[in-house]
């Protein structure tokens, strides 16, 4: 272990870890990496879960810990529940990456518990708004499944949370 820990490099290493289910996004893009700090010589990466039942939470924590360890840091990962993560924390870059990978990004619009609420979701491929919901839950709990009635492509919509 070097005497002075390069916290800047540690931050870069932690920030570049990909999400296991959306590998084109990093934990920094998603906004789930709260901070990387030095506590008594140990690099502490603070992460917050997206959804409480997200099966990827443990995997992400392991991945970040592994990346830091392989880069030579004496590190640990800490789970932070408060304040709660929201899709508003996804960075501009993250939103753009979602769109370019065929996933309609969250639109800052949450209908809460209103029954049969209709929402306008834009197709990430052809930008048509003639879309319809196929399933409230898609390939992961954080996404709903839609179909575009213009280009006929099905697509995932990252739910606003």
């Amino acid at each position: 272990m070097v005497a002075s820990v390069d916290i800047k490099t540690a931050r870069q290493v932690a920030a570049s870890v990909p999400d296991p289910e959306l590998p084109f996004l990093t934990v920094a893009d998603l906004g789930i990496l709260r901070e990387v700090v030095l506590e008594a010589g140990v690099v502490v990466a603070k992460l917050t879960p997206t959804y409480i039942g997200c099966p990827a939470v443990s995997v992400i924590e392991q991945d970040v810990l592994q990346a830091l360890t392989l880069a030579g840091f004496n590190a640990k990962v800490q789970r932070v529940n408060s304040p709660a993560w929201s899709t508003a924390w996804i960075t501009e870059q993250g939103i753009e990456k979602l769109r370019s990978n065929g996933i309609s990004p969250p639109d800052g619009n949450n209908n809460g518990d209103a029954l049969f609420a209709t929402r306008t979701i834009t197709c990430p491929r052809c930008e048509s708004t003639l879309t319809e919901k196929l399933s409230e839950f898609g390939s992961t709990p954080c996404k709903a499944h839609y179909r575009c009635n213009s280009c006929l492509e099905p697509f995932d919509h990252f739910k606003c949370h």
């Binding site: 959804y51 409480i52 408060s82 209908n111 809460g112 949370h161």
Partner: peptide, 13 residues
């Protein structure tokens, strides 16, 4: 704060 967002979906569904 986390749980309430999820439960809103459950009511709707």
């Amino acid at each position: 704060h986390k749980a309430v967002k999820e439960i809103a979906y459950h009511i709707r569904h």
